[in-house]
Amino acid sequence: MTGIKLTRMRILFAAVLLIVVVSACARHEDLPAPLSLVTPPKPDLIVSTVDSLTFNLTWSVSDVSVVSYYRIYTMIPLLGTTVDETADETIMNATVGPLGVVVPGLEFGVSSVTFQNVESAIDVEPAF
């Protein structure tokens, strides 16, 4: 009788062990809900040349009401990118320059930033 009880205990132990092993296995988390963010509008940039060292940037957006301010990117090859920010959403033009030298491959970019600090894609245009 003791042997039978011992055998049953062994089976019970094995069954419980299997269940514990299976339940203890790692499990990935479920997908979270998408963030409720206002999609920032991508500006449409136009670059005009005042002279060979000075540039005038003008842009427009589809919905200005969601924009807090704009970011202006000046991209100089080999030297990197500098970022300036406008004061508010009403400023939709900027003048860059005069630069010290004529920079081949110079590019400008503009993005909008919403009130939630989400930045839009950058519209990049060449200076020349």
Binding site: L35, L37, S111, V118, E119, S120, A121
Partner: peptide, 18 residues
């Protein structure tokens, strides 16, 4: 899930990255 915290702290994050 860390994006909302970063945005709340004033960090600007690109919608492309999100």
């Amino acid at each position: 899930l860390f994006f909302p915290t970063q945005l709340m702290n004033g960090e600007v994050i690109s919608i492309t990255e999100i």
